[in-house]
Design a protein around this nucleic acid. Structure first.
Lengths: 321, 321
DNA sequence: TGAAGGTGCTGATACGCATTAGCGAAGGGG
DNA sequence: CCCCTTCGCTAATGCGTATCAGCACCTTCA
């Protein structure tokens, strides 16, 4: 009953000093301090008898480190349909945080208390310029999950541009010559990167490329690159309703992975790529711990895994010849 | 890169003492200590300039709160298939935490760090007696999500017993007289409660009841109460394979909600109940904030919503008459 | 017999914060 | 001119732990 047992209590019980108890507790092999085996045993016995456990608060105070990594996001994470999207990031973050012995502080509202943590990980598809500047201005370690268009923001991102370009290359190899990119192409960096990867690859291959916000029938297009994976089912249905077979008449490439929320899954195994979300989370933690230890910020892009699927096939014009 | 800014730093910058900084920071209305408006402003300016935020550990050592609630679970939450099950709890916890202005500290390993938070919420289907005793022994505020078989543990639980009994009553009203409970019936309280609610209700209604760990064909049983919702699809398939129509020949009641993880969903809209998981999370936060403010622990049970479904119908024997 | 070296431990201190007793200075009243 | 009050602030302390300089005491060897 009553107070927690402290090292002082143990010390009094065994007739030694608090310092001795501390030494016995963390008997590092390299320690210069020697304790007689008999004394050590007495202390250990008392510790076992009382069920003493070192108080993490005291320990952290002495360490000058609280081993807390902050996490916050610029979009609702837990509720809503984005949950399925963010979940893998959190899995990765949590895994690695456990490995490095840190707890996670989930900021429920904004970054104003970010200094509570040793460093922070920020999530969110899009973060405005001025908000990023504010984060940098805090001069408190942080790492973004997802590339940011700012030289001062350390991040672990996904190489959406590279993945998109690779899929364009595949389509070109399959004979496609007329491409369409469907999606906003911004303002989030992840969308910009997809569109840029698409545009650059099409230009380099010398094929025709268009960009539209939403799909509208275009007879000559044989390959559609869809920015928003959640819209895959709708797009394919739409195409079929217009009498276009997928992938017979038109190929569809989805630039990401449909999260299997409440939404209807696409009727086909879609050609797409996979964002290494958990790995991004893990590396973000690694990166952050480096920053906390005084390292310089880095900017890292991780490759996305291409998933062949069955909606990217030989182009119609090619097949017809 | 610099150390954390401390009150000492602020004090030196403004030419006052550390104590003054502390006083300015938490200027309680009832304080006897007076600070000149001008001095106060100088300190506040320095705080703003440096972005100073009080250190979590320091405050906790001085036995102050940080508006941080810990969350802690005795089973893997984020990874694994249990994610879908725990997610709604977390949603509720996060919602309410934001409303009361608290951030959440996710402990990545064990309860030994719980004192870093002002108070903790613990999750998990089953927590052993000795572990619960340890939690109580910490003398640190905590609330369990889920009923615990211990008078000293404050909790917000679901009334599984009541919900199960209500479904038994419905079945009795539909003419069922021979019941089977399929599941472990323990050791988790949630399972105990279901089994007890089942047994008590059957006894009260004077109907025949059996309990088995896994379903084995029993010709005379007309109503099966299944403890583990995830097994619903398997059970129904199994019954059909044995030539028993559901609900024609035998009714099936599922004591909870199948989480739509990777598992196959049941082929029918199953008769079941719904655990108010988000609400439990919210009330756990409320409860915890009360505890942190010095209130006594309570034990609360929330009602589960019954879902009629289509697998509990008139009993065969009744229909045949 | 005295220096040298080893053994076993302790006292002091720091970590960041909140709190309280109390001190010097200024102002007012006698 | 001195006492008393009020104002504005600070020194000191405690919280639980880790660390380190250093102090007795003992043994060994010259």
């Amino acid at each position: 009953m009553g107070r927690r047992v402290t090292q002082r209590d143990i010390a009094r019980m065994t007739g030694v000093s608090q310092a001795t108890v501390s030494v016995v507790l963390n008997d590092r092999a390299d320690s210069e301090i020697r304790i007689a085996p008999e004394t050590r045993q007495r202390v250990l016995d008392a510790i076992r008898a009382t069920g003493y456990v070192a108080d993490v608060v005291g320990r952290r105070l002495a360490d000058r480190s609280n081993r807390i990594l902050g996490v916050f996001t610029y979009e609702p994470v837990f509720p809503s349909t984005t949950a399925d999207f963010y979940h893998p990031f959190l899995v990765g973050i949590e895994q690695r945080a456990e490995q490095v012995g840190c707890d996670l502080l989930l900021f429920t509202s904004g970054p104003h208390r970010m200094r509570l943590a040793d460093g922070c990980i920020v999530l969110g598809r899009f973060i405005g310029k001025e908000e990023l500047a504010r984060l940098v201005g805090e001069h408190h370690p942080f790492v973004s999950v997802g590339r940011r268009d700012s030289p001062d923001v350390p991040y672990v991102g996904a190489d959406y541009g590279g993945a998109t370009a690779a899929l364009v290359a595949r389509a070109v190899a399959l004979g496609h010559r007329r491409f369409a990119y469907v999606g906003t192409g911004g303002p989030a960096e992840s969308h910009l990167d997809r569109l840029r990867g698409f545009a650059d690859a099409c230009l380099a291959a010398g094929v025709h490329a268009t960009h539209q916000l939403r799909w509208t029938p275009q007879d000559d297009v044989t390959a559609i690159f869809l920015e928003e994976p959640a819209d895959a089912a709708e797009l394919i249905t739409n195409l079929r309703d217009h009498g276009r077979d997928v992938p017979g008449d038109v190929s569809v490439v989805v630039l990401g992975e449909p999260t299997r929320a409440g939404a209807t899954p696409p009727p086909l195994d879609v050609t797409r790529f996979r964002t290494p979300r958990s790995e991004m989370g893990r590396q973000a933690v690694d990166h952050l711990t480096e920053l906390v230890n005084g390292a310089q910020g880095r900017q890292t892009l991780l490759a996305c895994e291409l998933v062949a699927g069955e909606t990217l096939k030989t182009a119609r014009s090619r097949r017809d010849t």
